[in-house]
Design a binder for these strands. Structure first.
Length: 491
DNA sequence: GAGTTTGAAACT
DNA sequence: CAGTTTCAAACTC
């Protein structure tokens, strides 16, 4: 039995065996930086790792040995420590092996996982690079593997090469699913198949009685690291019905922090709709605060909710309380769903990434990663994804007739132009009027003035010639603006 | 609520 | 990669 397995944690939440609960260390990050430390005290070792925007969760497994059904004992082993290949960290799991139902979701970038797993090889060979595996086992995104499913054979190969002192850790087959959404957190699974784990997680959390905060709540109201934030340590009463596949449950109170729900991938694991209309109790001292999360139900009829047409599916959520028909986006069709996810990722590795990035452009809050392609809406209706997201169109957009731009920067559409139905560009013309353009324009005007003087024209005529030349220059500038915006323009 | 419009996603 | 079709949401009446 490992040291950690000897720890007994008591919570007040119904958490069926194999289910997932994110935790925050009650006193901040553990002392080992990214890892769960070798805590030997009776205090629970809740882990939360932050690396960039990623957060690590510990996934706990109840040890069904408590005779009191309302109180569970959980054991946890630090597989993350093992993954990061620090010999001293192996000690936790070395003695007792790997608890058979242990599962961890671990947050690292693909590259980090690649390096980490590579480092497991005793000979340092690259054969354990996720990159090499992912060519046939998972998905690729450019040169970076972003998903990996280790088959039992590959797991065995991996185990063979693991240093002796850690080899017994992997007596139980290991599956690693990393960075499925490219840039999202990494999930490390043990024992269960990759399909089973999300299923069990989602089954647990889909139970109607589960109450958890939704992403939007946190993102709208709270800064995860804001000092004194009310949500920094939320006490939540969470209860869930045990799914059929689980036999153990218990009452647990979990400390949650908002950032646990910010990643897209987590929405896959913790479907937002599972918390829809459900009450969450947040206590601060003696106060209790309730909130609800409403999710827009989809109405899909033909896509089986397994294509990106379906908002729920596109958001990494399960359908719940939707009006869809023939829906496969639920826990009863996990296999079909996972196939559909894979198909989407094959088509577009970034399919499940948020469309609205956080990158700021000037005063614009964010930007659409792909840009819109609107043609008839002027980007002033909710058909336009930029407009719907309440952001300006940018040069990334390929829209036609865009009006969703900063009028202080861009040109306005005059009534005359309205009559001729001239499309306006989405990008700021200032970027086109470079110093070279200005100098060239001035050169043309000077040349025209010199020509007028040389020809002996009167001042009024010379002025007219110069103005006409200026008009020509402006026409050229405007043409270049519209050309850069891929907009048809007839002057 | 039915029908139309729209643009993203999917397909060819 | 461009053109077309499919799809579901947004919109209009």
């Amino acid at each position: 039995m490992s040291e950690l397995e000897g720890h007994e944690y008591t919570y007040r939440i119904a958490l069926p065996e194999g289910s997932v609960a994110p935790f925050q260390h009650p006193h901040g990050s553990p002392g080992m930086g990214n890892l769960v430390s070798h805590q030997t005290s009776a205090e629970p070792v809740y882990s939360r790792m932050e690396e960039d925007e990623y957060t690590t969760y510990r996934i706990l497994h109840p040890v069904a040995r408590d005779p009191i059904p309302q109180v569970a004992h959980f054991s946890s082993a630090a597989y993350s420590e093992y993954l990061l290949a620090q010999p001293s960290h192996y000690q936790h799991v070395q003695y007792g092996g790997w608890p058979s139902h242990e599962a961890f979701q671990y947050s690292m970038s693909s590259g980090d996982v690649c390096r980490t797993v590579s480092s497991l090889g005793s000979d340092g060979a690259d054969v354990y690079s996720l990159d090499s595996y992912s060519t046939h086992q998972g998905f690729r995104h450019g040169n970076q593997p972003h998903a990996l499913l280790l088959s039992p054979h590959d797991q065995h190969k991996m185990v063979e090469k693991i240093p002796a002192q850690t080899s017994n850790i992997c007596q139980v087959p290991v599956q690693v699913v990393c960075d499925v959404n490219v840039g999202g957190p990494v999930m490390v699974l043990n024992h269960c198949s990759p399909d089973q784990i999300p299923h069990s997680m989602m089954s647990d959390l889909n139970a109607e009685s589960v109450s958890m905060p939704a992403q939007s709540f946190f993102s709208e109201h709270h800064s995860p690291h804001e000092p004194g934030s009310d949500i920094g340590h939320i006490e939540m009463i969470v209860s869930a019905e045990a799914p059929q596949t689980h036999s153990t449950s218990a009452e647990v109170t979990v400390s949650l922090s908002p950032e646990h729900y910010v990643s897209q991938f987590n929405q896959t694991l913790y479907p937002t709709q599972a918390f829809e209309h459900e009450e969450v109790v947040q206590t601060k001292g003696c106060e209790s605060v309730k909130w609800e999360k409403s999710k827009r139900p989809c109405n899909c009829t033909k896509s089986q909710c397994l294509k990106l047409y379906c908002e729920c599916f596109a958001n990494g959520e399960f359908c719940s309380s939707c009006k869809c028909t023939n829906c496969f986006n639920n826990t009863e069709h996990v296999f079909e769903r996972s196939q559909a996810v894979k198909a989407c990722l094959d088509r577009n590795p970034g399919a499940f990434r948020p469309k609205i990035g956080s990158r700021k452009q000037g005063n614009v809050k964010g930007c659409h990663t792909k840009g819109c392609n609107c043609k008839r809406s002027g980007c002033l209706k909710n058909y336009c994804e930029c407009y719907e997201a309440k952001i300006m169109c940018t040069s990334t957009c390929k829209c036609v007739g865009c009006r969703n731009y900063d009028e202080g920067c861009d040109m306005k559409k005059s009534s005359e132009q309205d009559r001729h139905d001239i499309y306006f560009p989405t990008r700021c013309p200032v970027s086109v009027i470079t110093r070279d353009v200005v100098e060239a324009t001035c050169g043309c005007l000077l040349a025209q003035a010199e020509e007028a003087q040389k020809d002996g024209h009167i001042a009024a005529h010379a002025e007219r010639m110069i103005l006409e030349e200026f008009g020509q220059c402006l026409t050229q500038i405007v043409r270049s603006i519209f050309k850069s915006s891929r907009v048809q323009f007839n002057l």
